[in-house]
Design a protein around this nucleic acid. Structure first.
Length: 586
RNA sequence: GCGCCCGUAGCUCAAUGGAUAGAGCAUCGGACUUCGGAUCCGAGGGUUAGAGGUUCGACCCCUCUCGGGCGCGCCA
């Protein structure tokens, strides 16, 4: 499909150049599928002004150029100057196999993909799933088009919270509870610490903000707890053996739990380089920024400032070293960027986080420009997930654990699977429930534009009808069922010939697969692939309802078997790119 | 106070400069005595928050207003 669209585009361009001169005419005009035509070109209207010709004159020339192409059945001018191309059925039938032909547009290029990045000592909750699922899909899609992808889990394993956690460990730990559920107990003592610290602040008469105010400007007297936490943090950062051992234990027990979740989700990374990994590089990073005049001293701290003239937009300053000599996450992000450039020389770095960090990354990228970083840096941000009653916070405890979500999804899918498949063995029902449940949760996140703010409700997140993973998985399972039945008759796939309308629509949908995959690799919007697969599955469902396969004439049956096989392959492949599995029966 | 993001059918979402704004859910009405009904076909439902502007053409780009979310020097 790509090749054809480009051939049409070049032919159209050449014709315009011949008739109207080369001035202002691109080397290839854009042809793309549209709801009104197999391929459509809008260039005539765009070029009309520059060429001082009526758009329809240009459109007529374009029609003349493409009408003789062997793939084209009909080309015509419509409306203000649209060129609508209808492809020959013979050409479509002969190119069914092109559906699987992804072009290696990323070959020879490396991409660093930073996603998931949960915080140590806190269980993953439903807010973490978007980064993980989006990032995993991007990893698979970019690999499919030839990129070398470095999937890096930038773990939140360093910083002020560990001083607090160490204090909480000494004062509040319930050993037995820790043995049973390490991360759960770490969360409990962390929340307890936060409550106690807040109480101390109130007792000191300090104004307490609603959330995340741990290190707001100190009142005249700092709470005793906070002072203790800072002392422990200093010890940790200075390499105190006891605190380092504790910290390492926190990381290890958290990582073990994360690994279980990742395994369940089918997510994997090439690197797990957390913030702590960059700790030793921070001092040198700040020195370099100072030497190059990118950073400056201000009120005892070191900051980078941003002006409209130099950076394209004015932004608040970015702190890279605190007055007490400590570093911040901006510092470690700059160090991480330098490290990634040095180690992998990527052409793109994609960082998948929620929308709250937009300012931070605009600042980071501005620093990168001043440092002369050649890679294309992309903040792949997504809308916050919230509950109907508002945003959730680990500290307030109003979170839904990721594991609970997955459990519930599987249970709901199992109930449906059992009611519809009384005859399936129990083990298979469980497997169907797992694949369908996980698929519906993932697809729910992937199928919306990532900038959408999601309000979580169980029924929406776990819907099994309409534009959902089970719809796609069901289409796949039906094809497999047909194939089993037909195999008993000894029928095999054969060449595709004349096309009924429903078959034609199906072939056209098949051929758009590479377009959808490339679009996702380019724009980091996996929902475009979901939309595509939904369209394909819809075209199949219509075909399935209208046209028999098993009971068709042998030649027709063979052709339809070929179509079924290609649709099944694209569905399975497309879902795999999204990180979603299929089952043979459901 | 300054800034960023979002606003599309009752609800959840597509359409990222192209023609008459499309799906699902919900509602209503249909479908082959079934290659599997987690399906298919159809109906109703829209001033794309509002007002200006740019363009041959605007949900999309620009300006302002309204509404919601979020961020803004010593957390990450």
């Amino acid at each position: 499909m790509h090749a054809l669209l480009e051939e049409l585009g070049s032919a159209a361009s050449a014709a315009l150049v011949q008739s109207f001169g080369a001035e202002g005419i691109p080397a290839s005009l854009v042809f793309e599928p549209s709801p009104r035509a197999d391929a459509q070109c809008n260039a005539a209207m765009q070029l009309a002004r520059g060429l001082k010709r009526p758009p329809r004159d240009l459109a007529v020339a374009i029609v003349g150029a493409v009408a003789s192409h062997p793939a084209v059945a009909k080309a015509e001018v419509a409306g203000a100057g649209f060129v609508n191309v209808t492809l020959r059925d013979e050409w479509l039938a002969a190119h069914v196999d092109d559906a699987l032909a992804l072009r290696p547009v990323g070959a020879g290029q490396t991409v660093v993909l930073d996603y998931s990045s949960p915080n140590v000592a806190k269980p993953m909750h439903i807010g973490h799933i978007r980064s993980t699922i989006l990032g995993e899909a991007m990893k698979r899609v970019m690999r499919a088009v030839g990129y070398t992808v470095v999937a890096d889990n930038h773990l939140g394993d360093w910083g002020t919270q560990f001083g607090k956690l160490i204090v909480a460990w000494h004062r509040y730990l319930d050993r037995a509870a820790y043995e049973r559920d390490p991360v759960g107990e770490l969360l409990r003592i962390y929340v307890k610490y936060s409550d106690e610290e807040k109480a101390q602040k109130l007792a000191l008469g300090a104004p307490v903000k609603e959330a995340d105010d741990d290190d707001a400007p100190l009142p005249a007297q700092a709470p005793e707890l906070l002072l203790a936490a800072r002392a422990e943090l200093v010890k940790l950062q200075a390499g105190d053996p006891e605190n380092v051992a504790l910290w390492k234990q926190f990381v290890d027990v958290s990582m073990a739990e994360f690994e279980r979740t990742y395994k369940r989700l089918g997510v994997s990374f090439d690197e797990v380089l957390g913030e702590s990994f960059y700790n030793d590089m921070l001092a040198a990073t700040v020195d370099e920024l100072l030497e190059k005049g990118i950073a400056e001293h201000s009120q005892g701290a070191v900051v980078v400032t941003f002006t409209k003239e130099r950076d394209g937009e004015a932004m608040p300053p970015m702190l890279v070293r605190k007055a007490d000599g400590g570093f911040l996450y901006g510092t470690s992000d700059i160090a991480a960027m330098r490290y990634r450039m040095g180690r992998w020389s990527p052409s793109r770095i994609l960082i998948v986080t929620d929308e709250r960090q937009q300012l931070h990354f605009r600042q980071l990228f501005a620093v990168a420009r001043r440092l002369g970083v050649p890679a294309k840096l992309e903040h792949v941000w997504f809308g916050l997930m919230r509950l109907p009653e508002g945003t959730f916070s680990t500290r307030d405890g109003n979170v839904i654990a990721l594991e609970s979500l997955l459990d519930e999804a599987e249970q709901r899918a199992e109930a449906v699977a059992r009611s519809l498949n009384a005859d399936l063995p129990d083990a298979e029902v469980k497997e169907v429930a797992r694949v369908v449940g996980l698929g519906s949760v993932k697809y729910n996140d992937l199928s919306k534009d990532r900038t959408t703010l999601v309000t979580f409700t169980w029924d929406k997140a776990l819907s099994l009808q309409g534009n959902t993973a089970p719809y796609l998985q069901y289409a796949y399972a039906r094809i497999r069922s047909i194939q089993r039945k037909v195999a008993e008759l000894g029928a095999v796939p054969g060449p595709v010939g004349a096309l009924e309308p429903a078959e034609r629509a199906l072939v056209l949908a098949l051929l758009k697969f590479p377009l959808a995959v490339e679009d996702v690799a380019r724009t980091a919007r996996p929902h475009a692939l979901c939309d595509y697969l939904y369209e394909l599955a819809g075209a199949f469902s219509t075909f399935y309802n209208e046209l028999p396969v098993k009971d068709a004439e042998p030649a027709v049956r063979a052709a339809r078997l070929t179509l079924c096989e290609r649709v099944a392959t694209v569905l399975r492949r497309g879902l795999d790119l999204l990180g979603i599995e299929v089952v043979e029966r459901m």
